[in-house]
Write a protein that binds this DNA or RNA. Structure first.
Lengths: 123, 123
DNA sequence: ATATTATTTAAGTATTTGCTTAAATAATTA
DNA sequence: TAATTATTTAAGCAAATACTTAAATAATAT
């Protein structure tokens, strides 16, 4: 099907619309990748996991289960999603798997962490 | 029900677990708020809308429908979600509603935009 | 070997999400 | 006033999400 215009208003700026399409094309891959990371961090439980890893270095699934007061499988499934995109990595020590942030995977997340810390409630 | 521990391993660092719970408590409100913004930006269509608003200043729903090649109601519903949390605002000019980013609403998003631009594909 | 512990994986389910189409508002024009 | 245009809102639905419980791995200890 041909490209259908939804908007017929006189003020519609065709050059602007073309420029926007081009901008999206140029940044398409980055936008897709960043939106994936943001979708992961957009879940409160996962953001807590990432934030804690940033604070503590490494933690294991049962630590998170204790801290977040949720089941170990639920934690494990969140962790897997973040591992799948390379946000976090694991290290085995006996039966325990320690998870940690992959450094410099995504600058956006670094900024998210500092932003959370900046707004820390002053006791 | 009482707080049940999932993890009984000897190495479990009770002080660390307490510290983590406290950290989450202290930052609870911020984490909740930021995760909401990230969840919104974690949708590729919405991230494109936000990115375009950052580039162009203001655009109307039918502009987005044209650019993103999707229906006007679909765009409108995405826009509403972002307006509901105060990420964007509207200005009416006749029949047309122009949407724009609310400045300084969230520093995290500013960083997301610069991160997208930084990775721009070099033509 | 068997049992225990830490974790993952799988299957099932309720909720949420993102679209669709149709109808409702709102402003403009004839 | 009636018709047109821009937009929102509502209802319905398929797909995705986040949990649950039970079963499967994997490492350690008895």
């Amino acid at each position: 099907m041909a490209l259908e215009l939804s908007c017929t208003r006189a003020e519609a700026d065709q050059k602007q619309l073309m420029r926007c399409r081009e901008t999206l094309g140029t940044n398409s891959k980055t936008i897709t990748e960043i939106s994936k990371v943001l979708a992961l961090a957009g879940n409160e439980t996962r953001l807590k996991i990432l934030f804690l890893l940033n604070e503590e270095g490494e933690l294991c699934p049962c630590d998170f289960a204790d801290i977040l007061e949720m089941s170990v499988p639920a934690v494990s499934q969140h962790i897997r999603k973040m591992k799948d995109v390379g946000l976090i990595a694991s290290r085995r020590e006996g039966q325990t798997l320690y998870y940690s942030l992959v450094p410099n995977h995504n600058e956006v997340m670094d900024n998210v962490f500092t932003e959370i810390q900046k707004n820390k409630k002053v006791a």
